[in-house]
């Protein structure tokens, strides 16, 4: 595997503003005819270049919190600021463009496009930011090599194992050099050995790329690697611990 830092955008040095700022965030949604409150007045800040984990029981609001940070959902109340951008000020197209440039996603069920090869899945985010074909090819191949899939570039998702698919998903999330990578239960569909290797991989690429990783999980293995742990219960932040070096 090759290092990936040379291909990715490096965070600026000096005093760094938090990459995520949430202020009194509330989220209520309608489930059938019942209003369900998913988040209640959560305020938090996540510094740059951190391996952060949001932990909590099922239904505690972890995924909702990640969706708000990822700008794929809007809060019912409060302010969301990501990469120093107040998200509520952006219209739908601008939010889409913002996500395309700044945020990478890793999903529990991999969510690769089944008709595209591993290479094409990884290349896809670069198409959205209007990169030239030569640059796309260079970055995509380097990224696949970095996650150990240089030899599987032409294979479709259904020809890959679960671990390989998640590696493709990691490469896809990182290839554009985002400031934040959000991962919702990335090891939930993997056996423990594969899950461990994926965690190792993510930890390594996070260190190499200095990208902020934010996970929603209750995987103890993943928590053991975290720099920041945010615990939530019933939609409220109950604990915040910093375990790694800032």
């Amino acid at each position: 595997m090759t290092k990936i830092e040379s291909h990715l955008q490096q965070p600026q040095g000096g005093a760094k503003a938090p990459v995520v700022r949430l202020h009194e965030i509330g989220k209520t949604y309608l489930s059938g005819k019942i209003n369900v409150t998913a988040l209640k007045g959560i305020s938090l800040e996540i510094p740059v270049d951190r391996f952060s984990v949001v932990v909590g029981a099922s239904g505690s609001g972890k995924t909702t919190l990640l969706n708000l940070i990822g700008c794929i959902d809007a809060p019912s109340s409060g302010k969301v600021e990501v990469c120093e951008q107040y998200i509520a000020k952006l219209d739908d197209d601008a939010v889409s463009d913002f996500r395309a440039r700044n945020i990478g996603f890793i999903f529990q069920s991999f969510s690769l496009v089944p008709v595209l090869s591993a290479y094409e899945n990884v290349e896809y985010p670069l198409l959205l930011v209007g990169m030239s074909a030569a640059q796309r090819q260079e970055r995509t191949l380097a990224m696949l090599d970095a996650v150990g899939l240089g030899g599987q570039a032409r294979q479709r998702p259904n020809e890959l194992s679960g671990g390989q698919r998640q590696r493709v998903a990691i490469a896809r999330a990182l290839v554009k050099g985002p400031q934040i990578v959000l991962a919702d239960e990335p090891t939930a569909n993997l056996d423990s050995a594969t899950g461990a290797s994926i965690i190792e991989l993510m930890r390594r690429v996070q260190k190499e790329s200095h990208t902020t990783f934010i996970f929603a999980t209750h995987d103890p293995q993943l928590m053991s690697h975290a720099d920041e742990i945010f615990a939530i219960r019933d939609g409220q932040l109950t604990d915040h611990r910093t375990t790694g070096a800032p």
Partner: peptide, 15 residues
Amino acid sequence: TNEIGTIRAMGVRRS
């Protein structure tokens, strides 16, 4: 639908 959600999350506009 899931694929639509995925690529929308990646930054594809509604259009």
